[in-house]
Amino acid sequence: MPVIFRVDGCRFHFFANEGNPREPVHIHVAQPDADAKSWLYPEVELAYNRGFDARWIKRLRDIVVMRRTEIEDAWNDFFA
Results as ranks from 00 to 15, higher is better:
His13Leu: 15
His13Met: 14
Phe14Asp: 07
Phe14Cys: 08
Phe15Gln: 12
Phe15Lys: 11
Ala16Gly: 15
Ala16Ile: 10
Asn17Lys: 14
Asn17Met: 08
Glu18Thr: 07
Glu18Met: 07
Glu18Ile: 01
Gly19Met: 10
Gly19His: 10
Gly19Val: 09
Asn20Gln: 13
Asn20Ser: 14
Asn20Leu: 11
Pro21Thr: 13
Pro21Cys: 10
Pro21Ser: 10
Arg22Pro: 07
Arg22Cys: 02
Glu23Leu: 12
Glu23Cys: 01
Glu23Ile: 00
Pro24Ser: 09
Pro24Tyr: 06
Pro24Ile: 06
Val25Asp: 07
Val25Lys: 12
Val25Met: 03
His26Ile: 05
His26Gly: 04
His26Pro: 03
Ile27Thr: 01
His28Trp: 03
Val29Lys: 04
Val29Phe: 05
Ala30Arg: 06
Gln31Cys: 02
Asp33Gly: 10
Ala34Tyr: 08
Ala34Thr: 09
Ala34Cys: 12
Asp35Ala: 07
Asp35Phe: 11
Ala36Glu: 00
Ala36Gln: 07
Lys37Leu: 03
Lys37Glu: 12
Lys37His: 04
Ser38Pro: 00
Ser38Gly: 01
Trp39Arg: 13
Trp39Pro: 02
Trp39Asn: 11
Trp39Tyr: 13
Trp39Leu: 13
Leu40Tyr: 04
Leu40Thr: 02
Leu40Phe: 01
Leu40Asn: 03
Tyr41Ile: 00
Tyr41Trp: 05
Tyr41Phe: 12
Tyr41Leu: 10
Pro42Met: 05
Pro42Arg: 05
Glu43Asp: 11
Val44Ile: 08
